[in-house]
Write a protein that binds this DNA or RNA. Sequence first.
DNA 1: AACGTAAGTAAGTGCATACTCACCTGCAAG
DNA 2: CTTGCAGGTGAGTATGCACTTACTTACGTT
Lengths: 199, 199
Amino acid sequence: MSTPTNHDAPPQAPAKRRRVPAEERREDVLRVAAAIVARDGMHAASTAEIAKGSGISHAYLFRLFPTKEELMLEVSHRAGDAMHQGMIAAGEQAKARGEDPLVAMGIEWTNQLADHTNLLVSLQSITASRSLPVLGDRLREAWGEVIADIARISGAGPDAVRAFVAQGMLLQVIAALGAEDAEWVSWLHDGPLPCMPPT
Amino acid sequence: MSTPTNHDAPPQAPAKRRRVPAEERREDVLRVAAAIVARDGMHAASTAEIAKGSGISHAYLFRLFPTKEELMLEVSHRAGDAMHQGMIAAGEQAKARGEDPLVAMGIEWTNQLADHTNLLVSLQSITASRSLPVLGDRLREAWGEVIADIARISGAGPDAVRAFVAQGMLLQVIAALGAEDAEWVSWLHDGPLPCMPPT
DNA sequence: AACGTAAGTAAGTGCATACTCACCTGCAAG
DNA sequence: CTTGCAGGTGAGTATGCACTTACTTACGTT
């Protein structure tokens, strides 16, 4: 009368799933999550979809990241950091080569258009920060550092840095709108997109 | 045996609800919805909260706006339109007075910082457009018109218009981050915020 | 007074979401 | 072979969501 332990004869072998160290899984999850957040935003991104996309169970996702909020903070941090570090590297290399660092950083920035993900996640972070105060704090701090680095590496003054950052924001918005091919965009840039003004 | 029609003695009078024409209610709802969307984004904004904030039942909200999507499209349209019209007006008035229209439009734009709502709704629209294709179409079109108007009224060329719009985006982001008082912001603007560069 | 209609609602429906619990399993060391 | 344990899951739970149905009520017109 007790329930039989028999599992009802699994019809196929259970696919012999690979076991993977947790760290590696976390990286997978963060990649997948970034793509989904880029499309849907942080609030609408669903943990179930992230789990499925990462090839793990919903339950295990919450062992890797105890709450959705922590996952999102990490996603945001990765995206911001990647862009920040990329720009620093490009700027300093150019400087070492005796070229204009600001131009090099601009090119690096526009290169990010190739894979929109970081750009979009950054934008989504900004809009989510209104209802996620911790994120807001982190972002304000991060922006301060980015701007300080731009200024330090390029040696440019406030006006030039402001113009530079503003252009970056415009690119971000164009990417988010999927408007790279809109005629007003090509009019604005008067030629192929990837060129930031030398100012 | 039939259920008594007696309503169990309503303890207070039912508050004598005011009846209001549907059009007027729609305006209320749109205002409330804009504020909530500004904070939470279009996906996370809840119709229930919008209804409650507007002082109507959840059910009636869906008579005023048949779906959430239509509500959101209207919210987005209102915000974008308000900013667009405001800029056109400021630009043309300045032109009539013989002043630089681009400067006037910039001032108008920064004035929007006083009540962030439109700025934020615009940003939220942009990020939502990735998962709401109709919205994306509308936004790309609207941006084309805005940029054409800026160019027409100011007579400025692509570079100046691009710089102008980019500054606008930066302001939008600063507002979204709630970073108006951050030190990097005041460094960037080197003085009080509301001043766009003449170029 | 009585009627028509626009304004308004209580109480759902069914589905998605974030998160949990009890349990299972591949693999390396003793 | 056995055991320990990190890696991994099926099947929930409670809550919130967009949206609906059937109904009531205020008010201008005749």
